[in-house]
């Protein structure tokens, strides 16, 4: 395991990351600064990634979107850094655009969240785990992109109603349709005419609750995601 990985660090810091909400993590950071890391005794607790805050549904939803954009950004970054050998002409350009868009989305949400970002006080960012995906073939890469983009679309469609201010709602809506365009492309490159796959019998694209989405993305996140503050509908 790489020394910089989140899990390696947390073997030492486990007790400080039981709650990763910004407030709790920030106070943990102060404590961490006071103690010698080596003297911390690992505590065998169930470590969790806590998305959002009890007292702000808006920051909770923005953090949830931020985690999804981080996931997509990390995915495309990995793919563009080590692209499969059998990509067709034009596909690396598409993947590079997708990476750029997701980096921009990630930083946009991170900037909007500021100190309210769930990871604002993390000493080391965790590393997403894509070992369940086949990223050595174009088939594998685009299949994974379809999955992640379709999840992203359904996540935005399902969660936006919980936002309580129109400013944040408009922010998410600007991203949501770009994710749907990404999703359509990821379907098209593998099979022409498959862009509509998730659209149901009433002509509506999919919507999923945060709980449903967390279950789908958990395999890519090396820490159990807590759904404690996420909306249940």
């Amino acid at each position: 395991m790489h020394d910089n990985s989140f899990l390696a660090r947390t073997l030492h810091r486990r007790s400080f990351f039981r709650v990763a909400g910004a407030g709790a993590a920030a106070s943990a950071l102060v404590l961490a600064g006071c103690a010698k890391e080596d003297t911390i005794t690992p505590v065998p607790t169930n470590q969790q990634l806590v998305i959002g805050k009890a007292d702000s549904v808006n920051f909770t939803v923005l953090n949830y979107a931020y985690l999804l954009e981080q996931l997509e950004a990390a995915f495309y970054d990995k793919v563009v850094t080590t692209p499969p050998a059998d990509l067709l002409p034009g596909e690396l350009a598409y993947l590079t655009d997708l990476r750029d868009h997701e980096f921009i989305h990630r930083e946009y949400l991170k900037f909007a969240l500021g100190s309210n970002a769930y990871d604002a006080s993390f000493v080391t960012q965790f590393v997403f785990d894509f070992s369940s995906l086949t990223l050595t073939t174009r088939q594998g890469v685009w299949t994974a992109a379809q999955k992640l983009e379709d999840i992203g679309v359904a996540a935005y469609n399902g969660v936006a109603k919980h936002i309580t201010t129109t400013g944040y709602l408009n922010m998410l809506a600007k991203l949501a349709s770009v994710e749907a365009r990404h999703a359509a492309l990821a379907h098209e490159v593998l099979q022409a005419g498959s862009w509509a796959a998730p659209i149901g019998a009433t002509g509506l694209d999919a919507a999923k609750t945060p709980i449903e989405v967390v279950a789908l993305i958990q395999p890519f996140v090396p820490i159990e995601i807590s759904t404690a503050y996420l909306p249940t509908t």
Partner: peptide, 18 residues
Amino acid sequence: ILQTALQLHATEARHAAR
């Protein structure tokens, strides 16, 4: 209605991309 509109919005975006 908001969620339905967003689902319609996403369908339109898929159309546009195609």
